[in-house]
Design a protein around this nucleic acid. Structure first.
Length: 279
DNA sequence: CGATTTCCCTGGCCGC
DNA sequence: TGCGGCCAGGGAAATC
């Protein structure tokens, strides 16, 4: 369940490793979600950005100007992992390792590996910034740490729809990068009911602030590992020790002592405090 | 067009 | 011990 903090952690680890390397070969799992990995071959990595939960590896054709013309788009889905293997004697087609969906061979002999047990991940190569065909990415809302992310647009966006505020947060359209864990944490910290259809200015102020706070804390802790998540070095995150709401149904609310409640919103398990998160 | 539902996947867990 | 059944969950496609 890599969300923004987990993807950002991986991005920071991979960028210095990949920068300047040329992708010289590729093997991919035979499924339309993964075979586009081949399209990255013949390009040099000139940067790695992140938009929401997407990694965008900047690509420039070998021998061309060092400006990115394309990007390798990687979404980790639920169980996606990325890492770099040192130069060794393994064949590119060493897919005897289970669940490997793509292996990219670099010009210095190293290999970047993408594995994904549940195959909810996705790989694409696009013209830079042309994300037609990747709807969620094309309609991605502002990055939470960008000045463009403001309380008023958040409030207007939530109130313009009949959907629950949590559904809106998960849609990626009002703000980028939240998944189930950090959405529950931010709503709890802002004392906003996850099922609310409308929010006030004061709530939008608090929510925009707590979204930034929980995501920043998540990044600082190297992400959240509940089961599957590992960073590019194979390490677990540590934010699971700091969770105050997600997955804690039945435990007393830290603020008021009321046992946290569990419900389902948008087919997502949702934890909240009935007492301090009023509609 | 916006909202809702369904589907994709598989390991882990529960109950019998 | 074995097995059927169910759950988790991001995002896209299908449907309403």
């Amino acid at each position: 369940m890599p969300e923004l903090p987990e993807v950002e952690t991986i991005r920071r680890q991979l960028e210095p490793e990949l920068l300047g390397s040329v992708i010289v070969d590729c093997a991919a799992f035979d499924h339309p979600k993964f075979t586009p990995a081949h399209l990255a071959v013949g390009h040099r990595v000139v940067g790695i950005r992140r938009r929401g939960k997407y990694l965008l590896v900047g690509l420039a054709a070998v021998g061309a100007a060092p400006d990115p013309t394309h990007e390798l788009v990687i979404h980790l889905g639920m169980t996606g992992r990325l890492w770099i293997e040192p130069d060794d004697h393994h064949a590119l087609e060493a897919t005897d390792q289970p669940y490997q969906r793509a292996r990219w061979r670099l010009d210095d002999g190293r290999t970047m590996v993408f594995s994904d047990v549940r195959r909810f991940g996705r790989i694409a190569v696009t013209v830079r910034n042309d994300h037609r065909g990747l709807n969620t990415l094309a309609q991605m809302g502002p990055e939470p740490f960008d000045p463009a992310f403001q309380p008023e647009p958040l409030r207007r966006g939530v109130n313009a729809s009949r959907q629950a505020v949590k559904t809106q947060l998960l849609s990626q359209r009002l703000v980028a990068g939240l998944g189930n864990i950090y959405a529950d944490e931010a709503l709890w910290a802002a004392r906003v009911h996850p099922g609310a259809r409308r929010i006030t200015r004061a709530q939008a102020e608090r929510l925009s602030e707590t979204i930034r706070e929980v995501l920043a804390a998540g990044i600082a802790a190297g992400g959240t590992t509940l089961r599957d998540y590992r960073d590019a070095s194979g390490a677990t995150g540590r934010f699971q020790m700091q969770l105050r709401c997600y997955g804690l149904a039945g435990h007393p609310c830290e603020r008021c002592g009321t046992p946290l409640a569990r419900t389902v919103i948008d087919a997502r398990s949702t934890t909240f405090c009935r007492t301090c998160q009023r509609r």
